[in-house]
Computed example of a mutant assay.
Amino acid sequence: MTWAAFWALIATLNGEATQASCRRLAEELSRRSVPDIIGFAERHAEALYRLDQEKFGTLPVADMTGRNGGPLPQSADGFLYARCAVVAAGQAAWEGAFFDADKFAPYTSAECEGEWLLYVPDRAYELATRKEWDRSTPYCFESYSNKDGWPNLGS
Rank of each mutant, 00 (worst) to 15 (best):
E54I: 08
R83D: 04
P73G: 01
Y81H: 13
Y49K: 07
A124R: 08
G70F: 02
P71V: 04
D134W: 06
E95A: 15
Y107E: 12
A89W: 10
Y125W: 15
A92E: 15
L48H: 01
A101G: 09
A62H: 05
Y49L: 03
A45D: 13
C112K: 11
P121E: 03
G90V: 13
A93V: 09
D102W: 08
P71L: 03
D77I: 07
R83E: 09
S75D: 02
V120D: 03
Q91S: 06
A92Q: 11
C112D: 10
E115F: 03
S109A: 15
D63F: 09
H44Q: 11
T108Q: 00
C84M: 02
A76F: 02
L118T: 11
L48K: 01
F104P: 07
L48Q: 01
L72R: 09
D134G: 10
G66L: 01
D63R: 06
P71R: 04
T108V: 05
A76D: 13
G70I: 04
A88I: 12
Q74V: 07
A101E: 15
A128L: 07
E46A: 13
F98W: 08
Q91R: 14
S136L: 08
E46T: 09
D134M: 05
V86A: 04
E132N: 13
L59N: 02
A110D: 05
F99R: 14
R50A: 14
T58D: 01
G69D: 10
Y107S: 06
D100L: 07
Y49E: 13
D100R: 09
D100Y: 12
S75Y: 01
E95T: 10
G90D: 05
C112G: 03
P71M: 02
T129K: 02
Y125H: 15
R123M: 12
F104L: 06
A76K: 04
D63T: 04
Y49N: 11
D52I: 01
A82W: 02
L118H: 06
K131E: 15
R50G: 07
E111H: 08
A47T: 11
S136Q: 15
E46G: 05
D134K: 14
A97P: 08
E95V: 05
A82F: 03
E95P: 05
P121A: 08
